[in-house]
């Protein structure tokens, strides 16, 4: 279908973009790669009055290392993330995540900032970025602020972004080598979106004990869900198969997933355990 009619602006700078956001307020939507927003507009699920397209704003894409932090520009595409050597080496779980988003066309156009700001509860990146303890740089004419993933995702399609702000970069603390990060996904057979997914980030000391663990589930709530019981069950333990299985068994504690036409609540709860286990095992196996 054709989208409802809308106004279109393609500012040449962030300053110009901020002006447009001030002018149009909540009637405006920021357009990045467009692979979530445009399909929704074509189905008339959303009908923004004005699009502010960032395509001509420079400096918003690219991947660089800043001390012990990896900084990814908001307009960096999924393909760039999944193939970047710095990501593959230091954050293989993130490279794996970006490589299973949508299809090749989506990955070539879709951007990390767009996906994060859209905050689809069935998206991949929010899950992994939460596990990696990423934070998001939100910029406006008043300056910038940085919000941690744990606080950024508020609810279904709702984030801490204010209407006058633009997400400009994602900052991810680089883990000590080896990088024990992973992502395991059960894709919906139609949409390819997450039915249930799990991301794990584990730190292991020289003695083989897990010193820190973040295990995050996707698809089971309005926002990425920290499986805190599973994290606690891993922390301080040697990562034996028994320990990992026992930790994963607690992954579904406290979740209340919604049934859909494909899977019911029981299946999603069970898959939370299965995919948490797969993610934990895959992370532990990285070396």
């Amino acid at each position: 279908m054709h989208p409802a009619s809308f106004g279109y602006h393609a500012p040449r700078s962030l300053v110009e973009a901020f002006g447009l956001l001030r002018e149009h307020g909540e009637d405006a939507k920021v357009l990045a790669g467009g692979h979530s927003l445009l399909p929704a507009m074509k189905l008339r699920l959303t009908q923004p009055e004005v699009l502010v397209d960032l395509r001509h704003v420079s400096g918003l894409s690219g991947i660089r290392v800043d001390g012990d932090t990896l900084v990814i520009g908001a307009l960096t595409t999924h393909t760039e993330v999944s193939t970047a050597e710095a990501v593959r080496r230091s954050l293989p779980g993130l490279a794996d995540t970006a490589s299973v988003i949508g299809d090749l066309q989506v990955r070539n156009r879709g951007t990390m900032g767009g996906s994060v700001a859209h905050a689809d509860p069935a998206a991949d990146l929010p899950v992994t970025l939460t596990a990696l303890d990423a934070s998001f740089v939100l910029t406006s004419s008043e300056g910038e602020r940085t919000v941690a993933a744990d606080e950024f995702f508020v609810d279904f399609f709702t984030t801490a972004l204010e209407p006058h702000e633009i997400l400009t970069a994602i900052r991810i603390p680089l883990p000590p080598s080896p990088a024990r990060t992973s992502y395991a996904k059960l894709p919906h057979p139609a949409s390819g979106y997450v039915v249930v997914s799990a991301a794990a980030a584990l730190s292991v000391d020289d003695a083989g004990a897990c010193t820190a663990a973040r295990v995050v589930l996707g698809g089971v709530a309005g926002t990425p869900h920290r499986a805190t019981a599973a994290e606690a069950a891993l922390t301080g333990q040697e990562l034996t198969p028994e320990v990992m299985t026992a930790a994963a068994a607690q992954a579904a504690d406290g979740i209340d997933p919604h049934a859909d036409s494909y899977a019911d609540e029981d299946y999603k709860r069970h898959m939370a355990v299965v995919y948490a286990r797969r993610a934990i095992e895959a992370a532990a196996a990285r070396a």
Partner: peptide, 11 residues
């Protein structure tokens, strides 16, 4: 219809 789009209906 619960599977009236290609997001729900799996080809």
């Amino acid at each position: 219809p619960r599977t009236g789009t290609l997001m729900d209906y799996a080809v």
